[in-house]
Every structure is written in structure tokens, then in C-alpha cells.
């Protein structure tokens, strides 16, 4: 179980992403079940999140994730290069999603208390 300090450092990996934090989370979540190339990522994200990432946004987020060492490109004979999650990327995603779940749980609990169950 990582300590508080390392949690902050891992969550901080997303801080510098600015408005690309959302696309980065979607990409990492998509890569969590195995390597994918750009088009496969777009289709997978569209399917599980109902969000279609535009090509420019997808590649800006990919280049930032690669620059931070959270994903890595795999060798390919094809022109479509696949990407996979690194260990650091998996840990950063785990911490980030846990933080998001905590926020979501608090929000839902308060909503239910003040506005009644959904």
C-alpha cells in the first residue's frame, strides 16, 4: 500500500495535463486491458465512455502520456503503432481513479441525503 506522499506524486502525474487530463484518463483506462493503436483506442473509448476523442486531442494526450513515461509505444510492422500501459502508468491510473471514486462516493452520498435516493 503506497504512503500518502507517493499517492500525491502519482496523482500529480495528471496535474500538468491541464485540459488533457480527461482524455488521458480515458486512454489509460482503455489501455488497462491491453495494447491498442490510435483507431482502436478511439473506438474502445467511444464504446465504454460514449466519448469520441478527436484525432488531434487523442495524439496530444498520447504524446504527453508517453513523455511522462505512463505509456510506451510498441514496435510494429504496421503503420499503426500500438501503445501499452507502463507500470508507472498503471499505478498513476489506479491512484487517480481511486481519488475520483472517493469524490464520486461523497457526491452521491450527499445528493442522496439532501435530495433523496435516485
Amino acid at each position: 500500500m503506497p504512503g500518502r506522499g507517493s499517492r500525491s506524486a502519482e496523482a500529480g502525474a495528471f496535474v500538468s495535463f491541464g485540459r488533457y487530463a480527461g482524455p488521458a484518463t480515458l486512454i489509460l483506462s482503455s489501455l488497462a486491458d491491453g495494447p491498442k493503436h490510435g483507431y482502436a483506442l478511439t473506438k474502445d473509448i467511444e464504446q465504454f465512455a460514449d466519448v469520441r476523442l478527436a484525432p488531434g486531442t487523442l495524439y496530444e494526450a498520447l504524446s504527453r502520456l508517453e513523455g511522462q513515461g505512463l505509456i510506451e509505444a510498441l514496435a510494429s510492422d504496421d503503420r499503426r503503432r500500438p501503445y501499452q500501459l507502463t507500470a508507472a502508468g498503471a499505478q498513476a491510473l489506479r491512484v487517480h481513479l481511486a481519488d475520483q471514486r472517493r469524490v464520486a462516493e461523497v457526491g452521491l452520498r450527499r445528493l442522496s441525503r439532501s435530495w433523496g435516493p435516485a
Binding site: 493503436h37 490510435g38 483507431y39 478511439t42 484525432p55 487523442l58 495524439y59 498520447l62 504524446s63 503503420r79 499503426r80 503503432r81
Partner: peptide
């Protein structure tokens, strides 16, 4: 990224 981005 040009080649793979072009494919996408």
C-alpha cells in the same frame, strides 16, 4: 507521430 497519426 506523422505516420500513425495519418493512419488514424
Amino acid at each position: 507521430y506523422g505516420e500513425e497519426f495519418g493512419q488514424l
